[in-house]
Amino acid sequence: MPLKHLLLRGLLAGLIAGLLAGGFAHLFGEPHIDAAIAIEEAAGPHTHGGEELVSRGTQSGIGLFLATGLYGLALGGIFAVAYTLLRRRLHTTSDARAALTLAAGTLIGLVIVPFVKYPPNPPAVGDPATIDQRTIAYLAAVALGLVAVWSAALAARTQNTDWRRATAATLGFLAVVTVAHLLLPTFDEVPATFPATLLWNFRISSLGTQVVLWTTLGLTYAALLTPRRRPADAPEVKVTA
């Protein structure tokens, strides 16, 4: 299939995934953000540099869906390019299975591995003085997460049976993740007074948004790659000159 067609399918799948992820975030994530903002405002007056240009309602509504839609669109394009480059390395004859494998690996490396080390915090949590260090550390965790997934794939190829491939992949993945988590710095900036339940719910909803995004992207892209089959009872159409 030409790259142009793969890219268009990726953009469409990404847009759908972004909008669905936005819907999940609106239903399950925004209430926790509102609660965190309320706690911040109750703690005392805060100066944010004048009036807000966009109201909170607009941010959590139209703004949220616009942001996740554009984000999904960009990810869909990148995903299609990555699929094109890595398709031959994914040892399967099924294009749909290859797309699902790539989406699952990306979810694990790009989202889950960094989440375990650096789970997101709601507004009002975190020291502004360490934002640069936290950003660099998080990007390092993302890079190492992708390396861990790649190491698992390389380790699996060294074995010739299913259980050996699974064992080698697991060990290769855990080795990189363990080293990464030991080397990367730890940031514990959550105030002791911040509600633990709210923090947990916010982090779970953030992870859920990413899971919805990548799961939908993988499933939709795989579906778009699957060729349509002519019904068995449909008459065959012949074209004559």
Rank of each mutant, 00 (worst) to 15 (best):
L6T: 02
L7K: 02
L11S: 04
A13F: 01
L15S: 08
L19I: 12
L19M: 11
G22K: 04
F24R: 01
L27S: 09
L27G: 03
H32I: 00
I33R: 05
A35D: 05
A36W: 03
A36I: 01
A38M: 03
A42C: 04
P45C: 00
H48S: 11
H48L: 14
G61R: 01
I62A: 12
L64T: 03
L70H: 02
Y71C: 03
L75H: 05
L75D: 02
A80V: 08
V81A: 06
T84A: 13
R89V: 00
H91N: 06
T93G: 13
A99W: 12
A103S: 14
G105D: 06
T106W: 14
I108P: 03
I112F: 14
V113C: 07
V113G: 01
K117V: 03
P120G: 07
N121F: 02
P122S: 08
V125K: 13
T130R: 14
V142T: 02
V142G: 01
V147P: 09
V149T: 05
L154G: 01
L171A: 12
L182S: 06
L183Y: 07
E189Y: 06
P191H: 12
T193V: 12
T193H: 13
T193Q: 14
P195D: 07
A196S: 14
W200K: 14
N201Y: 02
N201Q: 15
F202I: 03
V212D: 06
W214Y: 15
L219C: 11
Y221M: 10
P231F: 08
V237Y: 07
